[in-house]
């Protein structure tokens, strides 16, 4: 269930574009046509799906405080987390180079239509943001990391698909001249973000962790009471 919850949470509630504004530059630049938007969105999903688990492994076994214990007990105090930025960006740049080679081999038409934007995915805030959020939210297993990568990518893909479709349609609308192009896109994105906020109550109708803690506390209290009752009855019987 944890996987399903993370999946839907990352697509709708923590949507990369509407909740945290990651990847806005290429989002604004590529969304003029639906076909290029679809291509870029797919590339972003693929890169996120690959880089988030790899960075999770790096974080788990090299970067976290105490992560180096597999080398030997004397390394337990090392905290290399200050190197996170540079290591994450290095893996991302490498993976993007790989994706570029694969896309060029298997789909030259997609490679040509994406043009400069494929290598620019390496500096897309969404990719680095995915890895950094994975680290700051302390995602627990590689399966969840993979899940998080794919679902964040799908969320980004949905956002760019929606705005591209809308931008194609408003080309025939009467937008005031100073707002044409960039300005109206900002305002439309703002309105879509407000719309996406409505997904906030989707999973639990409220704060998940806040409801779980009182329940476990109550269960523990009831167990303690039962133990005390059992002890009291034994003493009475004696």
């Amino acid at each position: 269930m944890e996987h399903l919850e993370l999946f839907f949470k990352s697509i709708f509630i923590d949507n990369m574009v509407f909740a945290t504004f990651l990847g806005m530059c290429s989002y604004l630049a590529v969304s003029k046509k639906v076909s290029t938007a679809v291509g870029l969105g797919a590339a972003v999903i693929f890169v996120l799906a690959v880089t988030v688990p790899v960075n999770w492994l790096l974080d788990q076994y090299i970067l976290q405080p105490g992560a180096l214990t597999w080398l030997g007990a004397e390394y337990a105090d090392y905290d290399l987390s200050f190197l996170s930025f540079i290591m994450f960006i290095a893996t991302i740049a490498t993976m993007v180079q790989l994706v570029e080679i694969v896309v060029e081999k298997f789909s030259p038409s997609l490679y040509n239509s994406l043009g400069i934007f494929l290598p620019l995915i390496a500096v897309n805030c969404a990719i680095l943001g995915g890895s950094l959020f994975m680290q700051s939210r302390e995602i627990e297993s590689i399966g969840l990391a993979f899940n998080y990568g794919i679902s964040s990518g799908i969320g980004w893909f949905l956002a760019i698909l929606a705005i591209a479709a809308i931008r194609e349609k408003i080309r025939y609308s009467n937008v005031p001249a100073p707002l044409r192009g960039l300005g109206i896109t900002f305002i439309i994105t703002g309105l879509m973000a407000i719309g996406f906020m409505s997904f906030g109550g989707m999973l639990t109708g409220g704060d998940d962790e806040a409801t779980k803690e009182p329940e476990t506390a109550q269960v523990e209290q009831v167990e303690e009471k039962e133990q005390k009752l059992a002890e009291n009855t034994t003493t009475i019987n004696e």
Partner: peptide
């Protein structure tokens, strides 16, 4: 809330491009 930041920047763009007509996109 975050969406308002988008709308405020949209308004800034609106004001900026109204004052300087050369910046308007076609």
């Amino acid at each position: 809330l975050s969406p308002m930041a988008l709308i405020v920047v949209g308004i800034i763009i609106w004001v900026q491009r109204s004052r300087n007509k050369d910046l308007i996109e076609d």
